[in-house]
Amino acid sequence: MWERIEPLLPQAERKPRHPGRPRLDDRKVLNGILFVLYTGIRWGLLPQELGYGSGMTCWRRLRDWNAAGLWQRLHELLLSELRAVALDFSRAVVDSSHLQAMKGGPAAGPSPIDRARPAVSTT
């Protein structure tokens, strides 16, 4: 996956007069971002011992990558690869049962959430 992500990352420019601290490797930061998103911990609680940098570094890089459109480009790249292999949208099904029906009828049936209550008609 890294081979697909790395070329899409925006290149950070170093200022020769004010170089500051060396930039942390993008791959390590990506691992830190994924760790926080997977575990659900707060950014500030990202353990330094893991080598992913600080939570603030990961958060800033996520913000910058999002602003640069990295995730959209990655999504499009993966979709194009899937289409090239075998993804056939002609047989795709979209389930939208979680959305409220805008025009309900009087015979809508029982509530699927609470069977003891009758369905609410929106007409």
Rank of each mutant, 00 (worst) to 15 (best):
W43Y: 08
I5W: 08
H98I: 09
V93C: 01
A108T: 02
E81A: 03
L87I: 00
G20A: 12
P47W: 06
Q48K: 13
A92Q: 10
S121Y: 07
N31K: 13
D64Q: 15
K15V: 01
R83F: 05
T122A: 08
G53N: 12
L8D: 04
C58R: 07
D88P: 05
S54M: 07
I5N: 05
P106L: 15
L8N: 04
V93W: 04
L50N: 10
R4G: 01
D64P: 02
L8Y: 02
P22Q: 12
R23Y: 12
Y38D: 14
R73L: 06
L8S: 04
L24A: 15
R42P: 02
L99T: 10
G40A: 13
A68M: 08
L99P: 03
L9K: 01
W71R: 03
A116T: 11
E3V: 00
P22R: 13
A12R: 11
P118E: 14
A119D: 13
R17K: 11
Q100Y: 08
D25K: 10
V120P: 01
K15R: 05
P110W: 01
S111C: 15
V85N: 15
L74F: 14
P47A: 14
W71V: 00
A12G: 03
V93D: 02
R63E: 14
W2G: 04
L78Y: 15
P112Q: 10
Y52P: 02
E81P: 00
A107M: 07
R21P: 06
F35D: 11
T122W: 02
R23S: 11
S90Y: 00
R14K: 13
S121L: 01
K15Y: 01
Q48A: 15
K103A: 13
A108L: 12
F35A: 14
R4I: 07
E76W: 00
V93I: 02
R91W: 01
T39N: 14
R63F: 12
L70D: 04
L87G: 00
G51D: 09
G51Q: 07
V85P: 09
T57N: 09
E76I: 02
T57G: 07
R23Q: 13
E81Q: 06
T39F: 05
M56H: 07
W59M: 10
H75T: 04
L77C: 05
R42W: 03
Y38N: 15
L30W: 10
E49N: 02
L70V: 09
S97Q: 12
A107I: 01
W65A: 01
F35R: 13
S54D: 05
I33S: 12
P110M: 01
R115W: 02
E6C: 09
W59A: 09
V93Q: 04
K103I: 09
M102C: 05
D114M: 05
G44Y: 06
Q48V: 03
R117Q: 11
D114W: 04
D64I: 03
